[in-house]
Design a protein around this nucleic acid. Structure first.
Length: 474
DNA sequence: ATGTGC
């Protein structure tokens, strides 16, 4: 146990937090609130503990709405860390009769997508420079052509990927997708929820859908922060049977995408943080945490439709990021097979056991389902299989977890910055040099112990480990 | 996270 742990627990107690630890699982609750369920955090003793994230978690568990509904359980993944809008990243919230927009936040349907490619690493690296130049054009310089009609955009926002596919006949990239239709049919089962939720185009930012207009709706863009597109090598297969079933082989080339709904999610998320405040019952006092749930069934349904709208956009954003990469591999190397392994959101509200489960930076880990846990820049990423562990609310971490803020990395002084750069050790393609510092491995917890803790707890099992070859960061 | 915002 870390020497400063007792000091931290005493400090938290002075602030009114009851915290206990059994060497594996913390339980946290607000003192004197015996009715609130305790919040649990799976965290091995050697990983850093953050008071602010504990406070946010205890407040999340203590949420109440004057008109009813309840928080059933709160759990946090080992990569959890403080979030804006009052909810820690890595929080999983099980509710009945209420939903909490802040428990998903503005990065709606941020998630992961993994493909493998039938191309040797040697062949790929032999044309690395040509590949990088083309992808830089697509991802950074707008050479991609993903413009679409207002019909296609509406269909996308309403129905997700299947809706978009039906309206994509005239679309240049649609031709490439169409050529792949057989494969896409097979792939649709490899997208969580089929890449399709019940959305409403009215919730899109104004201007995204303009009747009769064909435009670039900002799709196939990576986004900032920890988002990336990475070419990888399958460096180890630990569950041969499962890997075979999923089409993953050792030594294979792979590519992984971490991205979300961009400004659509931001627009929807912000609108609903405001809406939850407006909808708070007259005369009732605002909770000190600032986290506001929705309880009115019509409002809940409307929020979920809005969230679904952004989620649909994110599903297609990841698909098109992958499609551009696959298209470029084919231009350079001929008819390369590059099937989807899985696409899964880690920021979303979904129905669960008669209520709702809001995950914010937590990957669904239902029994038998693929779980994708990205490493920090330069570190390995993991393909896992979920165990459906109810104690963990069927959820795994969505990464290693940030240990130091972007701000603290950026102001760390010249020595610190150089050390961070030196440690990066990965071929990072970016136009913004500061990303290398903000996203340097030193900014993150080590991924190994984070994954090991979840394997030991019976939440996930390892299937394969993927090492980075080159990473695109916007 | 965010076509970050004044």
């Amino acid at each position: 146990m870390q020497p400063n742990l007792n000091r931290l627990l005493r400090a938290l107690a002075r602030e009114g937090l009851e915290v206990t630890y059994d060497g594996r699982l913390y339980t946290v609750r607000l003192q004197g609130d015996a009715n609130a369920p305790p919040a649990e955090v799976l965290l091995p003793p050697d990983l850093p503990v953050e008071g602010k994230a504990f406070r946010q978690l205890a407040h999340l568990a203590a949420l109440k709405h004057p008109r009813g509904g309840e928080v059933l359980r709160v759990r946090a993944t080992p990569d959890f860390h403080p979030g804006d809008s009052g909810v820690a990243i890595g929080s999983v919230l099980h509710t009945r009769g209420l939903v909490v927009p802040a428990a998903v936040g503005t990065d709606i349907n941020c998630g992961m997508r993994l493909h493998v490619a039938d191309l040797s690493v040697e062949d790929f690296l032999s044309r690395r420079d040509a590949f990088v130049e083309r992808m830089k054009g697509h991802y950074f310089f707008g050479t991609r052509d993903v413009a679409m009609s207002s019909h296609a955009a509406e269909a996308l926002l309403r129905d997700g990927i299947p809706g978009w596919l039906l309206e994509t006949m005239e679309h240049p990239l649609g031709c490439a997708v169409k050529a792949d239709l057989g494969q896409l049919d097979r792939e649709s089962t490899r997208i969580h929820l089929g890449g399709s939720l019940e959305g409403d185009p009215a919730w899109a930012p104004s201007g995204l859908v303009k009747p009769g207009v064909v435009r670039d709706a900002g799709l196939a863009t990576i986004g900032g922060g920890n988002h990336f597109v990475e070419v990888q090598r399958v460096e180890a297969v630990t569950d041969r049977a499962r890997a075979w079933e999923w089409g993953v082989r050792e030594g294979q080339l792979a590519f992984m995408i971490h991205s979300g709904s961009r400004d659509v999610g931001k627009h929807v998320g912000m609108a609903w943080l405001d809406r939850a405040r407006e909808a708070w019952p007259q005369g009732a006092s605002f909770p000190e945490s600032g986290i506001l749930p929705l309880a009115d069934p019509e409002l809940v349904a409307e929020y979920l439709r809005a969230e679904a709208t952004a989620a649909n956009y994110a599903f297609l954003n990841r698909l098109l990021l992958a499609e551009l990469l696959r298209h470029t591999l084919r231009e350079l190397f001929g008819d390369v097979e590059a099937p989807l392994v899985y696409d899964v959101p880690h920021n979303i509200t979904l129905p669960w056991e008669g209520g709702w489960l809001a995950r914010k930076g937590a990957c669904p880990a239902e029994a038998g389902q693929p779980v994708i846990i990205p490493g920090s820049m330069g570190a390995a990423s993991y393909l896992m299989v979920g165990c459906g562990d109810a104690a963990a609310l069927a959820s795994a971490s969505h990464g290693a977890g940030r240990a130091r803020s972007r701000f603290s990395m950026a102001r760390g002084g010249a020595d610190h910055r150089e050390a961070a750069l030196g440690l990066t050790g990965v071929d990072c393609i970016t136009l913004r040099q500061e990303r290398r510092i903000e996203e340097a491995p030193a900014a993150y917890k080590p991924i190994g112990p984070v994954v090991a803790a979840q394997v030991e707890a019976g939440i996930v099992r390892e299937v394969a480990r993927l090492a980075p070859l080159l990473t695109f960061k916007a």
